[in-house]
């Protein structure tokens, strides 16, 4: 009788063994679960934020309209003086972010151009790790530096500057985001093909012209993406603001005033140990949701842009 294929395979020992099969599937499952942790984390983030945020808006003391339009934010105060308008926190965040970007974008882009186009390979290899160290300095240390070193100097220069102010915080934050802008921009400039540069050189362009008229425009989407990512970093940064910019929600565009950002409010509310379920605790989650949505949008935008330019040169 003709053996079945299975018997034939067994006869020479190349059949699938149950134990190996089970072992392989088990390993695959374990690894899959490890990879799924990130999905679970996302779900948990969204769930924890939204559950308490919904409770926040369901509270009779709060209305969405007030949240969006009122210019006062005092959720931790007594019942008679509580106001729930998030705009002071948004404005405060924007003040700091504005200063940070004004400092960080030119510095980041300039250093990226230098490192990618002008520096020797050796210089680049020395400086990049140093920039990484700058990026790796804990923000509580940067906050200390802003408060105890930068602020006193600025107060000598700028009249009427408060002890806690967005300028000092933003200035230091600008340096914090510099490595982000720089490294992503360097990557995207390095991705510009040699052939394009050589074509420009072949037409008699100088080094500077090649950089400004060929490389930077070709790498523009990556550069813009780095700005957006840096902006998201600045918005989400906490310790520098909490230490150097203060925690007094103020609806003002005067950069000398003490303000509060979304993040510094969260710290303040958390430190005050609001009991779970209280309106103060829920306000923390509501601000957290706003912060999360804002930074998520920026990150998605930045990723999208990066991905598009990555495809172009493949």
């Amino acid at each position: 009788m003709q053996p079945t294929p299975k018997q034939a395979a067994e006869a020479i020992g190349i059949n699938k063994s149950i134990s190996r099969n089970v072992g392989d599937q088990l390993i695959r499952l374990v690894l899959f679960l490890a990879a799924s942790v990130s999905v679970v984390t996302t779900i948990a983030v969204v769930y924890s934020l939204s559950a308490e945020t919904i409770s926040f808006f369901l509270d009779p003391a709060v209305s969405l309209w007030e949240f969006l339009t009122d210019r006062r934010w005092t959720p931790l105060f007594g019942e008679s003086q509580r106001y729930f308008g998030i705009s002071p926190l948004i404005i405060g965040t924007l003040n700091v972010t504005f200063v940070a970007l004004v400092v960080g974008i030119p510095l980041g882009l300039g250093s990226a151009i230098y490192l990618s186009e002008f520096a020797t390979a050796r210089t680049r290899r020395t400086i990049m790790p140093l920039l990484e160290i700058l990026a790796g300095i804990p923000t509580v240390v940067l906050g200390y530096f802003a408060l105890f070193f930068v602020t006193p100097i600025l107060r000598d220069i700028i009249p009427g500057l408060n002890l806690f102010n967005p300028i000092s915080a933003g200035l230091v934050m600008g340096f914090m985001i510099l490595p982000t802008i720089s490294s992503i921009s360097v990557d995207s400039m390095q991705a510009v093909p040699r052939a394009i540069r050589e074509a420009a050189y072949g037409l008699g362009a100088s080094r500077v012209e090649v950089v400004l008229k060929v490389v930077v425009p070709a790498a523009l989407s990556g550069i813009v993406a780095s700005f957006i990512l840096a902006m998201s970093r600045a918005i989400g940064e906490t310790m520098i603001v909490a230490l150097a910019a203060g925690a007094k929600p103020t609806f003002t565009f005067d950069l000398r005033e003490t303000i509060a950002t979304m993040t510094s409010f969260i710290v303040q509310a958390a430190k005050g140990d609001q009991p779970a379920g209280s309106i103060g605790s829920r306000a923390l989650y509501a601000v957290g949701s706003t912060l999360f949505l804002l930074t998520l949008m920026l990150n998605i935008a930045s990723n999208q842009i990066v991905r598009r330019y990555a495809e172009r040169y493949e």
Binding site: P5, A8, A9, I12, G13, I14, N15, K16
Partner: peptide, 13 residues
Amino acid sequence: GAELYDASVDAVE
């Protein structure tokens, strides 16, 4: 005598 692409065969073997 066996058939390498049969479903019962383990490619690793």
